[in-house]
């Protein structure tokens, strides 16, 4: 791993009028790593990404991208980045190929270079067969792949992906993840936002957990789970409307109990032992499940809320 910092933020803030969307975050992204912003809706992930992408002015704190200041060197920064925004902004009336060619020109690439790159990228995005089709009727996954292909037209050093797979079906997500792994192997730095913990676990070497504009935890997915959760979780569902009433029944089992509206989560290093204890007390849940801890549990522990509601 290279320790050259592609992004360095200190006390970075974004305000919209009186509202603070990003409330003083410190972020370091190194060249070649896959870095994630994990957080629920409204956490300030997109606002952070748009500042890093040098399209949204910084309201406070310090930000350097490639060592440059976005306020004065925005164009130079953008020339070296690829951007996949949260919602696709393709021209759906144009063809797949036209979208790529037009975009390449914005980076000052010649027609010949763009045509060559477009061919490679269509292949990479598995869209060669649709090259001359209009974008509009394509599936969500195809449009997303086209947006990613488009973001690569300038051979960027770093790719900003804002919720790359939100709204896609599982198969489309896996195709996309596969493409992103390839990019990472090719040395492209990935900066990803997501509110899916499985995506963060799959893709990110390191991530920050964001909530209400602040960073509440930072580290590799594994380290975060080790630090903020137990090895296993026992999930219990009871035949009741509100699980709060059932919490007393399992009090003292495991290291910690979290109450969600539809289930109880018992945090413990051995789920089966905990389940035996529950049964020994004569408590009869409708269903039970032992699983490994995930980033979702980390988030729940740190904020008292679930990531996706």
């Amino acid at each position: 791993m290279n320790d050259e910092l592609l992004v360095r933020a200190r006390g970075l803030r974004k305000e919209f009028g009186d509202f603070t969307a990003v409330d003083g975050i410190d972020v370091d992204v190194r060249r070649g790593e896959a870095f994630g912003f994990l957080g629920p809706n409204g956490a300030g992930k997109s606002s952070s990404m748009r500042m890093i992408g040098a399209v949204s002015p910084v309201s406070g704190g310090e930000l350097r991208v490639f060592g440059l200041d976005p306020a004065t060197d925005g164009a130079s920064i953008r020339a070296r980045l690829g951007v996949v925004p949260q919602t696709d902004n393709l021209d759906e009336e144009l063809t797949v190929e036209e979208n790529l060619r037009v975009y390449g020109r914005y980076f000052g690439l010649s027609g010949a270079v763009v045509a060559e790159r477009a061919r490679e990228l269509l292949d990479f995005a598995q869209l060669t067969e649709r090259a001359t089709d209009r974008v509009e009727p394509l599936s969500g996954g195809m449009k997303r792949r086209l947006t990613i292909a488009r973001s690569l037209i300038n051979n960027p050093e770093a790719l900003l992906l804002d919720e790359p797979t939100t709204g896609l079906d599982p198969q489309a997500r896996h195709i996309l993840w596969d493409r992103l792994f390839r990019l990472k192997r090719a040395g492209v730095t990935l900066i990803i936002t997501t509110h899916y913990m499985d995506e963060a676990e799959q893709l990110c070497d390191r991530l920050v957990v964001m909530d209400k504009g602040r960073i509440v935890a930072e580290g590799s997915p594994r380290a975060l789970i080790d630090e903020h959760s137990t090895r296993e979780v026992l999930e219990l569902r009871f035949d009741v409307d509100d699980h709060l009433g059932s919490a007393g029944d399992v009090d003292g089992i495991g290291q910690r109990v979290e109450v969600l509206p539809d289930r109880l989560l018992i945090y413990t290093d051995d789920g089966d032992v905990a389940l035996d204890e529950v049964t020994a007390r004569g408590v009869r849940p409708m269903s039970s499940l032992v699983r490994r801890s995930t980033l979702e549990d980390v988030f729940l522990h740190l904020t008292g809320r679930t990531l996706v509601d």
């Binding site: 399209v55 164009a75 925004p85």
Partner: peptide, 14 residues
């Protein structure tokens, strides 16, 4: 609607 201007502004264009 299709946010074309924003797509352009993510590139070196001002």
């Amino acid at each position: 609607w299709n946010k074309m201007y924003l797509a352009m502004l993510a590139t070196p264009l001002s």
